[in-house]
Nucleic acid binder design. Structure first.
Length: 812
RNA sequence: GCGGGUAUGGCGGAAUUGGCAGACGCGCUAGAUUCAGGUUCUAGUGGGGGCAACUUCGUGGAGGUUCAAGUCCUCUUACCCGCACCA
């Protein structure tokens, strides 16, 4: 009995056999391991491709991981075939709350949970067939790794970039942790999504603001997607303006404010201080309505920052009776208010209010009946604040200026001359709250000594390991579980030798991932974070791909750490990543974001089970524009499965070369090569599908062409391509074969079909010899009656000929 | 409110950057294979009109520039993302 076509093809693409076969051959032959400097292979040009290492959750890999990794997988495989020494590593960012919460719930040690999850992820990653260098796997929770995370922390401490402060912090009552601003966006905890509250706490900070300008400047020379740069620029939030010192009437005190428009100083009609402003306490005795002030402050303290910023429609505030300011530019006395629309955390915590030209000040002035003085012409300040440009008026020496830049410059000049202010810069970015009251994180290597204060743990005592313990739940007072481990807490001061106590907070989730790409370069080094020679060879990361959600946190943090390490001479480049791209989300089949609760989650392992890893990988790369979100479509997976099956059957169709197919092949190689570089994986695959369709039309394919097709398909579907490579009798691995070159002359046709338009309207097409001149084409067109019928009897006004594409005749 | 982006068949998406709109895949229709379902193969598939060759309309909407607009300009609508009382 003759088996049906489909059965033949299924035999040809027996992925259940083929995929494990090649996965173990790859592993045995170590072909995906990178060569370090000095080793054989390091003389080649290097390529360091990086993908964001996963947090190994218990749920295993998600299709999103597949999309994120497959892009650089394809690029790295292509680079290897093009003769590069490729480093494409993988690791696990395993510290974090989900693991700890799971451990608390089930009574399993986080170490065990982490190990199990890493094992699961490793198996899954191997099942997908990624060409990863498995000799360099890292795990941020391993003491041999976090030793260096702690080491970097101590270096920062030494260099004054670590400080401790009591501050109002974002606190999640559910997770019982302090969160950075980045982790509490929108007033919700990034981990459990409950509301966060403001709490006064002792907090460790990293002085990332010190690097604000460097982080901003560095963006000029990196190759990130424009929207990534935009987001980082916004996040850093640089604004230029001036600090102005207002007088406090009847005192020597200065009320210092920050403004971006010092040229509107003549329009100031009141001042506003944040409710927490320290001058209020200092001059409490002069404030006649201090009881009301206290009430107002209490009310504000109750609101979280979120409520405070959300309810921004309705301005609240209170005038400070008995206290007033003096405008340094004209000596005018100005009333002072407190209001919670001014934040203590930005600028100086106080502002000069110019209601005529600021929407918020205008609203406040209207509500409290304060004067509005116009200083920039152009709007109707009785109706609304005018924030546009215009001629300066009512402004003494600034009158007549029409250019904003000039008037600002002139105002700053005057302020500096009179000593009442100076130009200055502000950033929205705040210092990085760098501690958590949890167990599963890197211990902060600091000892608190009554006599010596904060003392760093000596470098030779690193790593400061997490103690083994059984109870991981945080204390009721929000203290770290480590606080209950006496053998950990009690220690000797490294400086004076007396009894002292260890810091019990741990580092936040983002610590380990801030430098992991450095460790891949030299993952087993116990002398230093990584060998300088190897760093010099491999850095910077040539291409980094990941999610948009990490563009403002992980990316800014790791750039900060890297720049610091550069400044102290540990790393050879001042930017870690030369190029950064991001993938779009995969949505559920219903077009909604995948989530367990919606039940629309697609498990990549199910797809591998049913169709094989090659189909999964090909589909994920084919499903749409790489950077955009696209819904999963199970039936489209089948389309890719058909494609792979049709490819797998090609070795039964080997025959004589076909001239037309050869040309198509060269075009396809060109297209695929270019599209991979531009991350246009969907059109690269489409081109190969088109070529395959042509082969089936012709009914045969020569062996050499099939070898070429096999190679260009192999980054996407490596298993079946290795299999085909073997069937073709080729030597070695397809994965390490040379990437095919194409002959440019064979990518152009001898004949072209061009469009012929009359008055811009398509009237037909004609075949012309490629590269024909206008006159030749005109003659050809005139021999086609279907077209000439639209021209005959009319006057030709104009002929437009676009070589090999189109001929447009304008007639009247 | 500010900043960025998107809008193309029933669906995901192409379009060499101003030059034949809808590549490729899915879905759908018809036929072949099959006991049947599935698979596979062949043909077709943007809308309207026509037996047909053909014709007309068509890239969120309204204008404009041009021999020619999905692409450029002006206005407008909807959706998505980021930031948000940032002084």
């Amino acid at each position: 009995m003759i088996p049906a076509d489909q059965e033949i093809k299924a035999m040809k693409h027996n992925f259940k056999e083929i995929e494990p076969k090649w996965q173990s051959r790859w592993e045995e032959s170590h072909i995906f391991e990178a060569a370090d400097p000095g080793e054989k292979g390091s003389e080649k040009p290097k390529f360091y491709g990086l993908v964001e290492f996963p947090y190994p959750s218990g749920a295993g890999m998600h299709v999103g991981h597949i999309k994120a990794y497959s892009s650089l997988e394809v690029i790295s495989r292509k680079r290897r075939m093009q003769g590069y020494n490729v480093l494409f590593p993988m690791g696990f960012d395993a510290f974090g709350l989900p693991t700890e919460n799971y451990a608390i719930k089930t009574g399993t040690h986080p170490r065990t949970v982490t190990d199990n999850n890493i094992k699961k992820f490793t198996e899954q990653l191997k099942k997908v067939g990624y060409a990863l260098d498995w000799s360099r796997v890292i795990d941020t929770t391993e003491p041999g790794y976090y030793k260096w995370t702690q080491w970097i922390f101590l270096k920062m401490f030494e260099n004054g970039l670590v400080f401790r402060d009591t501050a109002l912090v974002n606190y999640c009552p559910s997770c019982k942790v302090v969160l950075s601003n980045e982790d509490s966006q929108g007033g919700k905890c990034d981990i459990c999504h409950n509301d966060i509250v403001q709490k006064s706490k002792d907090v460790w900070y990293l002085r990332i603001t010190e690097y604000a300008d460097k982080l901003l400047k560095g963006l000029e020379k990196v190759d990130y997607l424009p929207n990534i740069i935009q987001q980082q620029v916004n996040w850093i939030g640089k604004s230029e303006g001036a600090f102005v010192n207002f007088g406090l009437k009847d005192t020597d005190e200065k009320l210092r404010i920050y403004t971006t428009r010092p040229d509107t100083l003549f329009g100031v009609t009141f001042m506003v201080m944040a409710p927490e402003h320290p001058l209020i306490d200092k001059y409490a005795s002069r404030i006649a309505n201090m009881a009301d002030v206290a009430d107002y402050r209490a009310e504000c303290a109750k609101k979280t920052e979120f409520v405070r910023t959300q309810l921004n429609k309705d301005k609240t505030g209170l005038k400070l009776e008995g206290l007033s300011a003096v405008n340094p530019i004209n000596g005018k006395e100005i009333p002072i208010y407190i209001a919670d629309y001014v934040m203590m955390g930005y600028g100086t915590g106080a502002i000069m209010a110019v209601p005529a030209h600021d929407g918020r000040d205008w609203e406040f002035a209207k509500k409290f009946g304060i004067d509005i003085i116009e200083v920039i012409k152009g709007g109707d300040i009785e109706k609304e604040a005018y924030t546009g440009d215009g001629e300066m008026v009512n402004s003494g020496f600034l009158n007549g200026f029409t250019n904003k830049k000039d008037s600002i410059r002139r105002a700053i000049e005057e302020l500096e001359k009179t000593g009442s202010g100076e130009g200055g810069v502000q950033y929205k970015m705040k210092d990085w709250a760098f501690n958590r009251q949890r167990y599963w994180g890197e211990p902060i290597p600091i000892v608190h000594c009554e006599h010596c204060g904060m003392v760093p743990v000596p470098y030779d005592e690193l790593p400061l390991c997490l103690p083994d313990m059984k109870e991981f739940a945080p204390g009721q007072g929000g203290e770290s579980p480590l606080a209950h481990v006496e053998s950990f807490v009690n220690c000797k001061c490294p400086k004076c030798g007396r009894d002292a106590k260890r810091e019990t907070d741990t580092m936040p989730q983002w610590a380990g991932s801030s430098w992991y790409f450095l460790r891949y370069v030299d993952p087993h080094n116990d002398k230093c974070l990584a060998d300088p020679e190897k760093l010099k060879y491999w850095l910077p990361v040539d291409w980094y791909n990941g999610g948009m959600e990490h563009v403002t946190r992980h990316m800014i943090y790791s750039r900060f750490w890297h720049k610091f390490l550069y400044d102290i001479g540990v790393v050879p480049t001042d930017e870690p990543y030369a190029k950064r791209t991001a993938q779009g989300l995969i949505l559920g089949p219903d077009g909604e974001k995948m989530s367990k609760s919606k039940g629309n989650v697609v498990d990549p392992l199910d797809v591998i089970d049913e169709y094989g890893a090659d189909v999964l990988r090909t589909y994920v790369m084919f499903m749409g524009d790489y950077a955009s979100a696209a819904p999963w479509s199970q039936s489209s997976v089948k389309g890719c499965s058909r494609f792979i099956e049709r490819f797998a059957a090609l070795d039964d169709m080997i025959g004589e070369p076909d001239a037309k197919l050869i040309k198509s092949l060269h075009k396809t190689v060109k297209k695929v090569s270019g599209d991979i570089e531009g991350m246009k994986f969907n059109t690269a695959i489409a081109a190969m599908m088109t070529y395959l369709n042509e082969i089936y039309e012709v009914g045969r394919i020569d062996k050499e062409s099939l070898s070429v097709l096999t190679r260009i398909l192999s980054p996407f579907a490596p298993h079946i391509c290795e299999e085909m490579w073997e069937r073709l009798g080729e030597k070695g691995f397809c994965s390490t074969a040379a990437w095919p070159e194409y002959d440019e002359s064979l990518t152009v046709d001898d004949e072209k079909e061009i469009a012929v338009q009359v008055n811009g309207r398509l009237r037909g097409t004609v075949m012309i010899p490629a590269g024909s001149e206008e006159d030749t084409v005109w003659d050809i067109i005139n021999s086609v009656p279907e077209i000439t019928q639209f021209i005959d009897g009319k006057t030709v006004i104009k002929k437009i000929y676009v070589k090999d594409r189109l001929f447009n005749v304008v007639v009247k």
